[in-house]
Nucleic acid binder design. Structure first.
Lengths: 162, 162
DNA sequence: CTATTTATCTTAGCAACTAAATTATATGTC
DNA sequence: GACATATAATTTAGTTGCTAAGATAAATAG
């Protein structure tokens, strides 16, 4: 196990993290295919499921799509029986988007292979190791978010005419 | 730190892994935007960069796209100066796709914030911890791949007419 | 040489996006 | 209350990038 130098070890961890990220994408795509919606649709469905019912405009901002795109997306999710529109009692211009109970069931069933595989893997480690792993993951996620924001915000040094 | 029960700890780790996967997607999107190409284009560029020069047909199979889509994709990558087509000396029907040297530089520069953030984080842990982390990640990736294949292969119980 | 296969490109059509215009509702001001 | 402005969602027009199918060129088999 000690065949790695410190640098190699670091590089190997970084590579594994990157691979892990790619596998996450593949899993999302497979889930979406099973549900009969696009990856974008599933991403938005996930946002609604995580944050709770929200208006079309809020979902547009949260997903980075335009409100026009959300209209079509909401149509597709409704047609697939995964979400429904509800009029807002207080502001009749608004449309609340809410996931249907079916989503919880279908989603859990489809996520089961991954969930079970990971849960099985984690049983091999003791509580202290899991706590350490959780700590590292949390810090890595926070650092990743920061890096993404840096990347987005970075002003291009010299824009080459164009 | 021991505020979690075993189940809560497991659930927290699973959630952190899922979040990590989502952040990976965001990072890819931000990278693609910086490079001035779509996420799909970057994914294919990445495939070529990782596996080395390949033909359009090989890239189609590796990416899951049709050869028709690869034609347009190769046009865009060439126009962006990220890849170039080269005639194959042995089989003149083939077109080899190769990343340009510029990609290595630009890619490394754009990946720097993430790379540095992760490298900095890892300096906080000793070699044994990193080796443990690497082991867990490798096993998690293998398990994830298996779960994805299970998900894809699962025959739909009863297809509801449609 | 001719037929078949293989590799890429081209064409037509489609799905999902954006930007801008439209409709409906809410809010502020006189 | 009436009017102007702001806000929320939808509709419309146009773009992009995909697939499927067909065309073209080159390799290979008989």
């Amino acid at each position: 196990m000690d065949e790695y130098s410190r640098d190699e070890l670091t590089a190997a961890v970084l590579l594994a993290l990157r691979e892990s990220s790619g596998l996450g994408v593949l899993h999302s795509q497979a889930m979406a295919e099973r549900l009969g919606v696009s990856a974008t649709d599933l991403e938005c469905l996930d946002i609604i499921a995580m944050r709770g019912p929200m208006t079309a405009g809020e979902l547009a901002r949260a997903s980075g799509l335009t409100t026009g795109a959300i209209t079509g997306l909401a149509d597709r999710l409704e047609r697939a029986g995964l979400a429904k529109r509800e009029p807002d009692a207080e502001d009749r211009r608004k449309v609340m988007l809410r996931v249907t109970p079916a989503v919880e069931k279908k989603g859990a069933a489809l996520a089961k292979p991954m969930h079970d595989a990971m849960a099985a893997l984690l049983t091999d480690y003791d509580d202290n190791t899991l706590a350490l792993l959780l700590d590292i993951l949390k810090r890595a996620n926070a650092a990743a978010l920061g890096a993404i924001q840096t990347l987005r915000a970075r002003p291009e040094p010299r824009r080459r005419s164009r």
